[in-house]
Computed example of a mutant assay.
Amino acid sequence: MSESLRQLQHAFMDYLNTGETASFQPHVIAQGRITVDTRLAIYRNAYRIRLTETIETDHEVLGLYLGDDLFDQMTRGYIQQHPSTVPSLRDFCDALPTFLAQKMPFSEHPILADIAAFERRLLNAFDAPDAQRLGFSDLQQLPVPDWPRCQLRFHPSVQIYSCQSNAVEAWQSIKAEQTPTAPDYSATRHWLLWRGDTRLTEFISLAPFQHELLMGFIQGRNFAEQCELMMQFFDVEQAPQQVLSALQAWFEMGLIAKLQT
């Protein structure tokens, strides 16, 4: 790419993001009755509409929760503060949860950032690479002496999401065309998300011990270490049974991609 073309592209992007025409206007000519300023405005408006549509697509439920006026305010502020910097719009909204957590008036309602973060996790699970999925029979075939040292590697779509609000419950209510309950910040909630065999994104809530167990395996702990960890929640006989029961469920859900000893 020639340096002059690169400079022209940068000048065009500067105009789209800031509205400043000084560096780019000389490269545009009028067309019939359409002035240079009008032609530039058409491009800039179309570009911002495309960015707005991306936010609407990625965060449909958040938009319904906010309502039209607040959603328009959010999209204008986000586009101004976080202009797109790469050709693909796949990651354009990655900073939206942080924006909502820091920008007034949205920061006064933490559930908004939580809903946005949950929708990002759903998108990540849906877009994750494909990988093999092991069955429980693969674990059963593992030599007994190897069980204590066994570690799990999860399917790339597996996501763990934790938040201090009832954001996911509100998301579910809106999806079901029901009125969500008032925001509740009384307890930390944990959720497991993944893409199933049918390529549908699924999620379930996690009890505290289930969250600890999943995070332990994700962080590389082996079966023996996980059984010891579960003794914080269960007695010495129940702990291994709880780990084994969880493992069987995870295999059935298609969460496990690899066993490693």
Results as ranks from 00 to 15, higher is better:
R76P: 02
D130Q: 05
R76E: 08
A125Q: 12
A116I: 00
W194R: 07
S107N: 15
Q178R: 00
D130T: 02
Y78C: 11
D127S: 05
D138Q: 14
A128E: 07
Y161N: 04
V168K: 04
P83N: 10
R153A: 15
S137I: 14
E177N: 11
D114N: 04
P145N: 08
A187P: 04
S173R: 02
N166S: 09
T85D: 02
L142V: 12
R133T: 15
S137Y: 08
T75V: 10
L134M: 10
A95E: 15
P105K: 01
F136N: 11
P183K: 15
F99L: 10
L139T: 11
P83F: 06
Q159H: 05
C163N: 15
M104S: 10
L89Y: 05
G77I: 06
Q159A: 09
L122S: 10
F136Q: 13
A95I: 02
I115L: 14
D68L: 15
D130I: 02
A116E: 01
F154Y: 12
D184E: 11
M74R: 05
L134W: 06
Q73T: 06
Q178M: 08
Q80L: 07
D69A: 10
F126I: 04
D130A: 15
H109W: 09
D130Y: 07
P97L: 08
G67C: 09
T188D: 12
D69G: 03
P156T: 01
M74L: 12
L152W: 03
R189V: 08
G196H: 06
S165Q: 08
Q159F: 07
S137E: 14
V168Q: 04
C150R: 00
L123W: 02
D127H: 05
E177F: 03
P110D: 08
D130R: 06
A167Y: 00
E119R: 04
K103E: 01
R76D: 09
Q132M: 09
R76A: 14
P129F: 07
A182F: 12
S165F: 15
F118A: 06
T98D: 13
A182G: 01
F136T: 07
G67E: 04
Q140G: 08
L193H: 06
F92Q: 04
L193F: 07
D127V: 05
V144M: 14
Q164G: 04
R195Y: 02
M74S: 05
R120G: 03
Y161W: 13
V86M: 07
C93Y: 03
A116Q: 04
D69Q: 14
G196N: 08
R133S: 15
D127N: 12
L134F: 11
W147M: 10
F154S: 02
F71P: 02
A187R: 13
M74G: 05
R90H: 07
Q178E: 15
L193M: 14
T75W: 00
I111T: 03
Q164D: 14
P97E: 00
T98S: 09
Q178Y: 02
A170T: 05
S157W: 03
M74W: 12
D146M: 14
D146C: 12
P129Y: 11
D184F: 13
A131E: 09
Y161T: 13
P83W: 04
L70R: 01
S173E: 15
Q178G: 01
F92N: 06
A125F: 06
R189T: 11
A187Q: 13
W191P: 05
P145G: 12
I115V: 10
